[in-house]
Design a binder for these strands. Structure first.
Lengths: 208, 208
DNA sequence: TGTACATCAGTGAACGCGCGTTCACTGATGTAC
DNA sequence: TGTACATCAGTGAACGCGCGTTCACTGATGTAC
């Protein structure tokens, strides 16, 4: 059954897309090649017509997830006034829905720690996507220098993904909700005070 | 070779201690029973004289790592004036040494995401230790209500462990160092502004 | 105190299972003539 | 346009390996008498 020219690309994309969901749900080593192929409606034998190895799929699936997240938040930001963009992203990031559905959420809290232990090539591929995500976040922070915006974006992502990891460890009760809420407040308060600090002297005094 | 009464307990403790290092280094599924026993100077067959299953060791090793971290920071805090305690903890947490030696560092960035995917019993055991760690951090935040201190402790831990995960993904270059530094600034700035906010009106205005 | 026996932490071979990967084969469709 | 052949995405059995777990056995030391 030979297929048309686009067919292989479509199948390849479908495997990557489905895998990116399942890997975020189950972890980078939490699901096997056979199950990933089954998710895409195929049998495991055909896997190596599309990827050199399981690891190659993992890299593609991560990149896909990161790109989708970065695009998603950029689009959300574009529909929001500049001074509210970061707040809107944080509010949509630290939600119960995101906490309870890692498969369709940010790959950083789901897979960051595992990727950091992966071989250098895989880790670097992920690091490049992480940098793009941070740049996108920095773009949403107006009224400060580029350097300050990047620094704030790094801290904001650390707090957001960290709070999501902690909230997932905590389960889905009150304790978990409190973590989400504490993370939101931390990012938003700091954004507010950092902005004031660059435009007023009184606020600057507070930072030191 | 029957051993004295304390011998088994000592061996058990040694296995747990060594495993807690290796699991933080390699991940919750990154190292096998045989290698873990070898680390403790034993052969794999004896494992089940000490633990019901591999998972039981994982739970004990996590609990051990969390207790050690919590104790460690409590001790550091006790040797520091109250108003500098959180800052001292943050400074010792977000370092290159900690980033580059996960085996002897905090279990939350190393294993949190994986534990969140584990079965409910394992996850809940970890969640209880997480709550203890947050309580300990809240104890180091003076001059605010208990509720506010806990909230700030949650956010601080989220930022700290998140920054460590991101820094490990980023490797060990400039980008990675910037993440550590951005995380430090975020926690310390917020601690300073939160304190001011409870004692001065001008600062309160800044938070809103 | 001395002796015979019981205990059980630890050994190392073996089992069963799942997983990543390989491979011979299939057959629908593209392509050459 | 029609026909014969080539291609190659996908199938499903099989391989080899590592891992968690089991088990018969060992032998130094605790304990009963």
């Amino acid at each position: 059954m030979r297929y048309s020219r686009e067919h292989k690309q479509e199948t390849h994309a479908r495997i990557v897309k489905k895998a990116s969901v399942r890997l975020r749900e189950k972890g980078a080593h939490g699901i096997g090649v056979a199950d990933l192929m089954k998710d895409a409606g195929l049998t495991h034998g055909g896997f190596y017509a599309h990827f050199d190895s399981r690891e190659a799929l993992v890299i593609e699936a991560f990149a896909h997830a990161m790109d989708r997240s970065t695009d998603h938040w950029r689009k959300i930001a574009e529909q929001t006034p500049p001074e509210q963009r970061l707040a809107t992203i944080v509010d949509s990031y630290l939600t119960r829905v995101h906490r309870d559905d890692p498969g369709h959420g940010c790959a950083v809290p789901a897979l960051g720690a595992e990727i950091a232990r992966e071989n250098p090539r895989t880790r670097k591929a992920f690091a490049a996507k992480l940098e793009q995500m941070i740049d996108m976040l920095a773009d949403q922070i107006p009224e400060v220098s580029r350097k300050a915006a990047r620094q704030q974006a790094m801290a904001a992502l650390a707090t957001m993904m960290g709070a999501l990891v902690l909230a997932r460890v905590a389960g889905s009760g009150e304790f978990s909700d409190e973590i989400l809420s504490a993370g939101r407040d931390a990012v938003l308060d700091r954004a507010a005070s950092a902005k004031k600090a660059t435009s007023g002297k009184a606020a600057k005094a507070i930072r030191h």
